[in-house]
């Protein structure tokens, strides 16, 4: 190896070091306290947190918000193990477990929206106007009678959306186990976007979150239409849970609680209420305190600031 090559390799190493230093100075300042928020990909996907984060950091310049997103399971693991300071999730059953076992200090609902049942515009099963459980029952009946006309595509990936779908099948008395063996019931085994594409291709019904659905229709990728967009069975509530410093002493409870307070403050709620209006022509979330949840939802847990 001659000297020229050594020189070139040295230059490459220097470039790596230089961009490393750049990346550092650009992304983290040591004097800022970090607030780590774990969330599921589906919430991160909507882009809402990006706006909330920017507003929060403006108000609290000493805090560097870092939103960690992974699959639902790992997002909960991060909280369970104390790797984050705050969790933003939408799985009430698991959230309550968190409070019960002392991992979280409290649970504050800050927004909600609905899962949508979407399908072909000619609505071959005739579900428009029904509620979610009735609609699933109807799809099952019509699918059994006309498997070529009426189909349903499931994500089949054990995601939050999938578990909600299972619950609706069970609540509608059709039974999830029964539908999985039916010829009209298809599983994509993929994310929401791919599942919507499959449903579009097959002229099938599916259960979707509103954000992904609106994004796909806006780009003209699918021609499915929303058929049922509200009701208890489709309600999707987002809650914030700070991680308990008694259990995980390193957590930044102060910043976490500030973030929760900010989410439910008029300023935070305004951001949530407007989010999506510009991009999709309609907001994706309904803020909680200004528009109280439908009566069937448990009342908002009051927030207590730490001493």
């Amino acid at each position: 190896m001659n000297n020229k090559n050594i020189a070139i390799i040295a230059i490459i190493i220097i470039i790596i070091a230089a961009i490393g230093i750049y990346a550092f100075s650009a992304s983290s300042s040591p004097d800022k306290s970090k607030l780590r928020i774990s969330t599921t990909t589906s919430l991160e996907d909507t882009g809402l947190l990006k706006e909330v984060e920017a507003a929060f950091e403006k108000k609290y310049p000493g805090v560097d918000v870092q939103v960690v997103s992974g699959g639902t399971g790992i997002a909960l693991q991060y909280g369970q193990r104390g790797d984050v300071d705050l969790m933003l999730v939408h799985d009430k059953k698991r959230e309550e477990e968190f409070i019960k076992n002392g991992t979280g200090t409290n649970r504050t609902e800050f927004a909600y929206n609905y899962f949508w049942i979407v399908g072909p515009s000619n609505d071959p099963a005739g579900i428009k106007g029904l509620n979610a459980t009735e609609a699933f029952k109807k799809i099952a009946q019509e699918g059994q009678a006309n498997p070529d006309q009426v189909k349903f595509v499931s994500r089949g990936d054990e995601s939050g959306t999938h578990s909600r779908e299972k619950k609706i099948w069970n609540d509608s008395k059709v039974g999830y186990k029964n539908v999985t063996n039916s010829s009209w019931y298809l599983e994509s085994g993929k994310g929401m976007g791919d599942t919507l594409l499959v449903a579009n291709e097959k002229n099938a019904y599916t259960l979707s979150d509103s954000g992904t659905f609106l994004s796909y229709t806006k780009d003209g990728k699918i021609s499915l239409v929303p058929l049922i967009t509200s009701g208890k069975a489709l309600l999707n509530v987002y809650a914030a849970i700070p991680i308990n410093p008694d259990k995980h002493p390193k957590t930044n409870i102060e910043a976490a609680q500030n973030f929760v307070d900010f989410l439910v403050s008029p300023e935070g709620q305004a951001i949530i209420g407007k989010y999506g209006q510009e991009k999709y022509g309609q907001p994706l979330f309904t803020p909680v305190p200004t528009n109280p949840l439908p009566s069937l939802i448990t009342p908002l847990v009051s927030v207590s600031s730490p001493a």
């Binding site: 996907d45 994310g191 994004s215 796909y216």
Partner: peptide, 9 residues
């Protein structure tokens, strides 16, 4: 992977 799940294919 984030953009794909958001539908930004």
């Amino acid at each position: 992977s984030l953009e794909t799940s958001k539908g930004n294919i």
